[in-house]
């Protein structure tokens, strides 16, 4: 498999995808919620971009870890949308964004508890059955533990194994959590169900205090996260890799350089290595 490096598609630099010849991501990713039920100017742009690049979708509002009921009318629209744009991978977050009948539009940490595991596994199965595809869930950054009965890795591992969902491994989030909660990032990676990883996220973050990093997606990837990425790839079979950049968008050349760096590392592990093998 050829290494595949994608980037998040955002309105802030939408035209680059259509006009910049040097900007050639292998695939793109966007949030279906930001584009569903929309016509006019932006639908036209999205149609052109989706025509040009393979599409992955990364949802925001499924709220798989929510105490509230699943939103079936949303899932219905989502299913149609994924079909329309021939989306191969639909990923979401292992977190919740809705509670007490109100959306919050950000990722809140689920308590690492046994009943939450059972609840989430059951919901993942329902969503997978309905969408007729595996759900791909991302390990999220979190800034405080919430009524935990177990550690994060046990929580993630149990959910992935029991539900048979896939994993979106966000290497930056592992780095951020290891820093914020004082654990060893490499050991955490080794314990992740790496054979279930559908693709990888890489991103930048912001250190807001000496002991706290916030996962902003507003900065360039830092070297220690590249190093953790390098280490992670040495343990894995090839999967696509996606660069997330949501805020503080730099010149496109800077994004191209970051993607190039990701490709260099991925190629080192996955192409050269495999070539010598066969």
């Amino acid at each position: 498999m050829k290494t595949s490096i994608g980037i998040g598609f955002r309105r802030d630099f939408a035209n680059e995808f259509l006009t910049n010849q040097k900007f050639t991501p292998d695939f793109i990713e966007f949030a279906p919620e930001n584009w569903m039920n929309m016509g006019g100017y932006w639908k036209n742009i999205l149609d052109q971009v989706a025509e040009r690049f393979p599409v992955t979708c990364h949802g925001l509002s499924l709220s798989i870890g929510s105490p509230d009921e699943l939103d079936w009318s949303f899932l219905k629209e989502l299913k149609q949308f994924l079909k329309h744009y021939q989306v191969e991978i639909y990923s979401e977050h292992l977190s919740y964004t809705k509670a007490a009948n109100a959306h919050l539009y950000d990722l809140l940490p689920v308590p690492f508890r046994l009943d939450a595991i059972n609840h989430i596994v059951n919901r993942i199965r329902q969503v997978q059955d309905y969408l007729e595809r595996p759900l791909v869930l991302e390990n999220v950054s979190y800034y405080t533990p919430v009524a935990a009965e177990m550690d994060e890795i046990t929580f993630i591992d149990e959910i992935v194994n029991q539900s048979d969902c896939h994993l979106l491994l966000d290497v930056n989030n592992v780095y951020v959590n290891a820093f914020n909660h004082g654990y060893d990032a490499r050991e955490f990676i080794r314990q992740m169900p790496l054979n279930k990883v559908a693709y990888i996220h890489m991103a930048g973050h912001e250190k807001v205090a000496p002991d706290l990093i916030i996962d902003t997606h507003g900065q360039a990837i830092i070297d220690p996260v590249y190093e953790l990425f390098d280490y992670t790839l040495s343990l894995m079979q090839p999967v696509p890799v996606l660069l997330e950049r949501d805020f503080n968008i730099p010149e496109t050349d800077a994004l191209i350089m970051e993607m190039k760096q990701l490709k260099t590392i991925a190629t080192k592990h996955w192409e050269v290595h495999h070539a010598t093998k066969h």
Binding site: S66, P67, Y96, A99, L108, N118
Partner: peptide, 15 residues
């Protein structure tokens, strides 16, 4: 499958 206690904790955080 979610206990009332966990549900309450999640709602408290959101609140």
């Amino acid at each position: 499958l979610l206990n009332t206690e966990t549900k309450t904790i999640q709602e408290k955080l959101a609140g």
